[in-house]
Every structure is written in C-alpha cells, then in structure tokens.
C-alpha cells in the first residue's frame, strides 16, 4: 500500500515532529548545560569540558552507571519473559481471577514508591535476607513486571482466540500455537513492554535506595542525593544519549544495508 503525499500526511508528520520537539527540548537543555563553564543550571556562562573531566574522575558516578545498566538489563529480561508468559496465561483465565490478579498487578504502579520500597524492605528484613545486588534486582523485577503485563494485555485482548484454537484443531501443539500464532501477533507489544520496563528500572530512585545492599549505588541514587547540583550528571546523561543514539542508528542501518544487498525492500513507503 503506497501512501501518497497528501496534505494529511504533511499534517500528521508535522504533528509528530512537534511532539518529538517537546520531548527532546529538556534533553537538549541537559546536553547544552553539560558544556557550561559554571555550576549554574540557568545561566550559560561559557563553553567548557570541565564536567566531563569531573565525571571521568568520579568513580562513584561511573560505578553507578555500571550498576544501573546491569540491573536494568537483568530486570528487563526477566520481567519481559515472566510478564509475557503471565499475560498470555491470564488472558485465558476466568474473568474474575483475571480481574483480581490484574488489580494486584496494579498495586506497584499505583503505590507511592516509598510504600513499595518499605514493603519490600520489610519483606527482606523479616525473611532475614541481607540487602544486596540480588535484592535490588528482585525488587526491580517486581515493579517492572506490571508494566510489561499492562502493555501486552490490550494486544492479547484484540487477538482472536479462534486463531490459536483453529491451529490446535489442525494438529498444532499448544507450544506451536503459542510460538507460531500468538507470539508473532503480540511481538510489538512485547517490545514496547520491555522498553518501558527498562526505562522504569533505569530511572528508579526510592525503591532502589531501600533495597540495594551496602555500597551499591545507581545513577538515580547519585542524582537524588546531590546536596548541591553537580553538572557532571548532565555530562553523564549526554553520554547516555549519545551511546543509545549510536546503538539505535546501527540497529536501523544494519537491516537496511543488508536489505539493499539482497533485494530492494518494499517496506519503505
């Protein structure tokens, strides 16, 4: 289906551009002030790389990013798998069970972080589990799964039950029905769920603070504990944006280069 360049598509393109501008405006601001000469966050006094030097020398900060990434990757992987499997299972449950479980599922989303944090801390204290990197990861998985389920559930509800059933009637095993019929259909939702889970884990402060073991800091713990603003965190954020952008560009370039080598892709409109 080839889209014609109608006034409508100009309008919709323009709208999306505006939304992106809105979303990237503060990011640009953070980037800009990572090059500021002074500590101020409102006055740009001149160009300097001092916050980058500062960042490189700050071991606590560098270790915090390592911790953040490790925790986010593991939490995302586990919560995406568990969440997807659970969502598929739940979609076939009786309505009353599904509703109750989904209501419980909403609790971590709804509760203020401090309540989730103290709740989990109490759980670890009462089971005599020492706080560590493991408890931090467990806690992150716990608050990430609900986001994955919430993202996948609507897509599952759109799915036609009959398709999977028909496949099974035609001799497919439940496993085949799952991997060949259901998963391909909800794949974009799984991806979105994973991305949201990753963001939630990446940006969490309160829950991390109260469930991480001694000496374990993530970026948010660093940022929130700043008594006085340290623009090195802007430098750090700039680094994150640059690295992620590079990854995105690569991920997008590789298939298109490969596609050109084999056959002209028809996905480009």
């Amino acid at each position: 289906m080839k889209e014609r360049k109608s006034p409508w598509s100009f309008f919709s393109g323009g709208y999306l551009l505006l939304v992106l501008l809105f979303i990237y405006l503060p990011i640009a601001y953070v980037l800009l002030f990572s090059f500021n000469d002074s500590k101020s966050l409102t006055n740009f006094t001149g160009f300097s790389l001092r916050w980058y030097e500062n960042m490189v020398q700050d071991r606590t900060m560098l270790e915090s990013i390592q911790c953040t990434v490790v925790v986010a990757v593991i939490a995302t992987a586990v919560s995406t798998v568990v969440g997807t499997v659970a969502a598929i299972g739940l979609s076939k449950a009786r309505r009353i069970i599904r509703n109750i479980v989904l209501e419980i599922n909403n609790l971590p989303v709804m509760n203020p972080d401090i309540v989730t944090a103290i709740g989990l801390m109490l759980l670890f204290i009462s089971t005599r589990i020492q706080l560590s990197l493991a408890t931090l990861i467990l806690s992150h998985i716990t608050f990430c799964i609900p986001y994955v389920i919430l993202t996948i559930m609507p897509k599952l509800r759109q799915l036609d039950d009959n398709v999977a059933e028909a496949a099974m009637d035609l001799g497919a095993t439940p496993w085949q029905a799952l991997t060949r019929v259901i998963l391909p259909q909800i794949y974009p939702a799984i991806l979105s769920g994973a991305l949201i889970a990753f963001s939630m884990s990446f940006d969490d402060f309160v829950i991390s603070f109260f469930t991480a073991g001694v000496g374990i800091n993530n970026i948010s713990m660093y940022v929130y504990s700043m008594k006085r603003y340290n623009p090195s965190v802007n430098a750090l954020s700039t680094l994150i944006v640059v690295v992620v952008t590079l990854i995105l560009v690569l991920v997008n370039l590789i298939p298109s280069i490969r596609g050109r080598n084999t056959k002209e892709g028809d996905t480009e409109g």
Binding site: I23, V30, L41, S199, V223, S237, I240
Partner: peptide, 13 residues
C-alpha cells in the same frame, strides 16, 4: 530514549 534520562534532571531542565 528520553525516559532513560533521570526525571529529576529533566525537571530541572
């Protein structure tokens, strides 16, 4: 992507 930048930083911005 912007969701990975600390919320506090973005709010300061």
């Amino acid at each position: 992507l912007p969701m990975w930048i600390n919320m506090l930083l973005k709010t300061y911005a």
